[in-house]
Design a protein around this nucleic acid. Structure first.
Lengths: 142, 142
DNA sequence: CGGTATCCGATAGGATACTG
DNA sequence: CAGTATCCTATCGGATACCG
């Protein structure tokens, strides 16, 4: 999804009556840019269970590549949501844990997870209904 | 933030056999796949203010292309989060509104928006700190 | 007005190989 | 073990142009 900074098009002289989250942008885009990718939430959820080493995260999150795990943890560190500790042992050992801020984010993510669980079936049903009513629809809708 | 010298007493126990949200997947991936893109949340936020016509959404969300607005609303309809009503007038008129389920999702999205607003500055500060400590870092971290 | 259809560039992310 | 460094492709999404 890669929602980088809002394109230059946000240069709207006329103060659009109501921004969606537009000009008053609560910063939610920054958060969603992070949460929106394929892996970040999974890493946060796993780390919410406790400190984890790189390898542990890797095994706990089926399907993630080493490259993406590295990128994801790094971005989380950069945002101050995760703390990284490296011990110069041999072999090297590195572990990750949520910061205070990371834990508070995890809490609201759980809110989303709860909603997801509660509406999982309803969404699936809605999709089936829609797919039945719209045979041969674009695959872009998945 | 770097290498604190806390002994490695971190017991690798972590037996937690369950995936991060892996196989027992609470369905949160489905939700985040939807929320994760560039526009969905903005559309939901705008629709949380009331019924909107296609053109109104388009103008309320600066930067979105017609194509993406079409795709986004369609996906939301498919998931049962938004209801679409078309009136066969000339010129055509179509409006969109959140369904009951859509409104409940909007509520939890607002929770995320609140968190974002509350931590916006802290995140920006963390990033600045990290960027200062890691000059010449990959642009992939943005 | 409210869309489709088409083309196209950017990039997210997988696979693989190598390193301290 | 915990990463880097490359390569490569699938997809996301912008820019047109056209349509009922």
């Amino acid at each position: 999804m890669s929602v980088t900074n809002t394109p230059i098009t946000s240069q709207v002289s006329a103060p659009v009556t109501t921004g969606p989250c537009g000009e008053d942008d609560c910063g939610i885009r920054d958060v969603l840019d992070r949460l929106g990718d394929r892996w970040t939430v999974l890493v946060i959820v796993e780390l919410s269970k406790g400190t984890r080493r790189f390898r542990e995260l890797h095994r706990a999150i089926p399907g993630i590549s080493q490259r993406m795990l590295t990128l994801t943890t790094k971005r989380l560190c950069r945002d101050g949501l995760v703390e990284r500790n490296a011990y110069p042992t041999i072999p090297p050992q590195v572990d990750y844990r949520l910061t205070e801020m990371g834990r508070s984010l995890a809490d609201t993510v759980f809110g989303l997870a709860d909603w997801s669980r509660d509406h999982k079936n309803a969404i699936a049903a809605a999709r089936d209904r829609w797919d039945a009513d719209h045979p041969g629809a674009e695959p872009a809708l998945r």
